[in-house]
Nucleic acid binder design. Structure first.
Lengths: 193, 193
DNA sequence: CGATTTTTTGAATCATATCAACGTACGTGG
DNA sequence: CCACGTACGTTGATATGATTCAAAAAATCG
């Protein structure tokens, strides 16, 4: 039930058995069926969620009704609307299970207390955020400067697993392309040669 | 010489006078003249830099010779190539002073020691990174889903100060637009009505 | 000042979006 | 287990926003 989490933590900081036990007490376990929501637009994001099993997405819906996917999260990833979670302001994001999920949830108060009680958790979070920040910077660079084809090749390269598990139009949404454009890009990539 | 830094830290964690004194010992001061570089493509990013005064940009140059601005950093901001800084891998970024600058530099070893000696610095870094991550997420959302005009209106709103201090073509580069497009967008925004 | 850099303008072109239609796959209840 | 309805993916025709290339105007700097 905590395998993925301690794997994730262990890759970054070393916890004693005692610390692991302490750590466990702050989480609540939750199952989510495919299509269920962890967060809906207009609600406050109550949880920072760690994915033990399954796959989720966070997305917004614009005024024309189009969905824009911000993030996917599979096993070993965290997902939340960090801004809403930290400030208590209502969220503009939705977080939805794309597969049946097993999650470990941290409320804001649990998170604060864990940070206070376990300095290594603070390190863990900082290191996670560093990685997330670096990944984000790359994604921005890609989204600003790459063609549709380059973006697609790029995501295949970085998240080959995600593309396998997600409908194509969601990959398109994540890349900021229309489903039609992605379909044509793929066609071009297969035919030539 | 440390005003901006302690202002930045103080907004996030509370340091005692003692801790402040300890903190100071880890930084080195550096002046940079306009057009000088803190980091050049191909070098390893040796410093995480805090801006006490002045303005810098980080950018890449693509194969066609076009510059793509990743980040601006003015007073109170940090700038580096975090990936290169943390891993020691050579950087693909350039960091250049756009104005005469006064910087506080942290080497990797100084940073590691400061994190180890001063737990509050770890908190400070985590909180900074949270904010940076949230800002990045918004920027991605904007870059994927907004028109040229919306992007420009957006940046005026968020960083009004930066646009005043930076040539227009660099704003265009930051937004992922050509200088010509930004010029036309601005024209459209002034004339109508 | 003159020289360089920056911004603007125009015309042609290109990549991607949009709209609409069709085929296919999927899973859900009868 | 089949049939039906909904999701999803593909394809074509057209529209559009942004880029590219070229050159002139304006601003900035030494």
């Amino acid at each position: 039930m905590f395998e993925q989490l301690f794997k994730s933590i262990n890759e970054r900081v070393a916890l004693t058995e005692e610390e692991k036990e302490l750590c466990k007490t702050f989480y609540t376990f939750r199952r989510l069926r495919k299509r269920q929501f962890l967060l809906q637009e207009g609600d406050v994001c109550k949880y920072n969620a760690f994915v033990e099993k399954g796959l989720l997405r966070s997305y917004t819906v614009d005024d024309k009704g189009n969905e824009h996917i911000i993030q996917f999260a599979a096993e070993g990833w965290w997902i939340s609307d960090l801004y809403s979670f930290l400030t208590g302001v209502t969220s503009v994001y939705n977080i939805e299970a794309l597969e049946d999920c097993e999650l470990l949830l941290l409320t804001k108060s649990a998170s604060d207390e864990l940070l206070a009680r376990l300095p290594k958790f603070e390190s863990y979070q900082r290191i996670l955020l560093q990685g997330a920040y670096i990944a984000m910077q790359r994604r921005i660079h890609a989204s600003l400067n790459q063609t549709a084809e380059e973006k697609y090749l790029n995501i295949i390269d970085i998240y080959p697993d995600i593309i396998q598990r997600v409908p194509q139009h969601m990959v398109a949404s994540y890349l900021g392309l229309t489903p039609e454009t992605l379909s044509r890009v793929r066609k071009q990539l297969i035919l030539p040669k």
